[in-house]
Structure formats: structure tokens, C-alpha cells
Amino acid sequence: MTLSTPLLAAVPLVASLLGPALSGAAPEQYATATRVPDTPARPDVAEHDPAQDAGVLSYWTPERMAKALPLGLPVVFAKGGLLSSLAPPVTGDDPAPPREATRAGVSHRSARPLATTTGSRWAVGGAVTKTTGRVFLTLNGVDFVCSASTVRSRNRDLVVTAGHCVKDGTGAWARNWTFVPGYRKDGSQPYGRWTARRMFVAGPWARAADDNHDIAMVALSPSRGRHVADVVGVQDIAFGSPRGGRTISFGYPADPPYDGRHLVYCSGALRDDPYGGTQDQGLGCDMTAGASGGPWLSRFDTATGKGTITSLSSFKYSDDQRTMYGPLLGESAKKLYELAGRA
């Protein structure tokens, strides 16, 4: 399906969340799966070189960053078990989320993470407060924000996010793409910011905006000669995890009742897509636009703030705004990761 513009409207986990381990310009290039004898096939990936974005750091003035709009979670209409289209973008005139969501998202803070929550501020600290960050980007001439996480990789420059935070489905690639790890509520950037050196999305996302493949990897340019992994650390990533179990997700939701200034988390059990339209799994989560691309972690240790990324925030159904869906990280995502990690 194709995302609307300019405003665009897990996997499984094994360990429990209780206790210390809570369980433009450049043309896109497609790597086909055509095999040549004795030559390994390149993965089905769309790549983009954002070299035209020279001066991106000066582009993101404090004023532009403050005015950037939350890039909406694609909202999918469910009818007869089929995915038909995307809902209109969320606007300031839309009704506020349920009171319970407002309480959880804005007021609840706890020194002890909840085993089940649909949206609470993360006040425990740990590595996740540095590895998770906000993404600032320009898509079809409009400035937006998303979420992303650093991930362990060979090049020490890799972040993972949602495909729709990097490329508008079959449409344009994002410009001015910048990652700000550990973003703070006063707008400060304690660990600096990194720009995109190379962008990668799965071929099915670039060709058809397939929600099963709403995944992107971005190789970052060093900042002041330093790799992002060496400055803020990384989260591990796993592919082909079993379905079901529990997860904890993180992001910077920016539509009401959230304001994008706080790291928020959801935690609970995973369930299959009830409409059968995707292979994604759902998590009870009230996070709103701006949280797109935030990591879902299994085997999460509250003492260290580290876990294993097994999915990310992708979309919601039109008739269920209380459930977030995330794609399975399977063989396609693994090939995407391996290619991006060598960039």
C-alpha cells in the first residue's frame, strides 16, 4: 500500500519482563535475487545515497527541530480482514485519546518498570536512554520526527527504524535525515547528532509499501570523527525469533497526549494480527505519531537498559488505536541488516 503525503497518516519475545531481565536526487537501486552460478545473490533491498544533503546539520536549527511534525503511524483500515487503504493524517482537530491513555502517557512515572503498560515515561535510566533517539527528516518538503535505535553492527554506524521513516513507500526518499540519540525534554542533544550516509529499505517496502517489511537501516556518517556506537553504545538484534511472548517498546511519541519530549515505553504480551492482513504482531500501546521506528526489545534487563531488538513500531488499525503492530524480523530483515552493516 502507498502512504499518503505530505502527512503520512514482532515479533516474538522469549523472556519475561519481570525481574532484572524484562525480557531528490539519487535514483534508488534494487538488488535483485537473480542468481549467477558461483556468485551469491544480493538481497532484495532498495538503497539510497543522500549525498545531496550537504549542510544538513545547519539545516536543523533549534526552531526547525521544534516545529517538525510527528510522522504519523500508518493507520490501516480493516474491512473483511483485508487491508484497503490508509486513514487520513491525525490533525489537531481529532478527538483526544481515552482518559486512561492520557493518564498513562503523561502522568505515570515509576522507578520500577511496569510489566504491563500501554504507555509510561521511562524513568529508570540505563543504556536505552542513549541508544534510543529521535529522527529528524524532510519528506516531500515537510519536516517530520520519528524514533530509532542504534544496533550492533560491523561498521559501528547503524541505526534501525521504520521503513516509512526513511522512504514514503513507493514514493520519495527522506532528506535531511538526522539521528539525535538520548534526546532530552528541553531539546538538548547530550550526545550530539549524526547524519545519514547510506539508507536501506526492504525491496517489498520500496515497491509496494508492504507492512510486513516496514523496516529500514541507516548507516550514519561519523560525527567529529566518532562512530555512533562508540559514543552511545548499541542494542543487540535478533532474526527469526519465535512468535508470541512479551516485549517492551520505546519511542518518542509527539501527538497528544504526548509531546515528543520524553522517552516512553509500552510493555506487555504480543498477539497475532487479528485481521490476518499481515504477519506482524500487536502490542497494547497508546503511543502516537513520532514513535514510528522505535525499538521493541526482548530479554530486556532493567539494570543495564539493554536487550535484543526483535521488532519496531510500525502501524495501527483504524478501529483499534490502542494496539501497535510491528513487523517480524525474518530472513529479509537479516539480509537488509547485513548489507547495511557493511556500508
Rank of each mutant, 00 (worst) to 15 (best):
V159F: 07
S58H: 01
A78G: 08
R42D: 05
H164R: 05
G80A: 09
G133M: 06
L86M: 07
S147W: 11
T129M: 01
A68G: 10
L73T: 01
A104E: 14
S149L: 05
G169F: 01
L83V: 06
H108E: 15
L114K: 07
V151D: 01
P62C: 09
R64P: 05
A172Q: 11
P74G: 01
V166S: 06
G55T: 09
D93F: 14
R64W: 03
T61N: 10
D94P: 04
V124H: 15
W122A: 08
Y59V: 12
T102G: 15
A104G: 10
W122P: 08
S153L: 09
W173K: 09
L83D: 06
F136S: 14
V90H: 09
A123L: 15
T129I: 00
A127F: 03
G133F: 00
G163Q: 05
V75T: 05
H164A: 04
S107D: 11
T102A: 15
L82F: 01
A51F: 13
P62G: 01
E100D: 12
T116D: 05
A66D: 00
R42N: 03
A104I: 04
A115Q: 15
R109T: 14
G126F: 14
D93Y: 01
V76N: 04
R64C: 10
D49T: 02
G125S: 14
S85W: 13
N140M: 03
Y59H: 06
S149V: 00
M65L: 12
G141L: 02
L71G: 02
N140L: 08
A68F: 13
V159K: 11
Q52M: 12
W60P: 10
T61E: 12
D53F: 03
S120R: 01
P62Q: 11
A78V: 14
W60G: 09
A66P: 06
L57G: 08
T132D: 08
D168Y: 06
L82S: 11
A51G: 03
E100I: 08
V45S: 00
A101D: 15
R103K: 01
R103A: 14
L114D: 07
V166E: 06
T178H: 13
A96F: 07
V142D: 10
V160E: 04
F136I: 00
K167P: 07
F136T: 05
Q52L: 10
A162E: 02
A101E: 08
K67F: 03
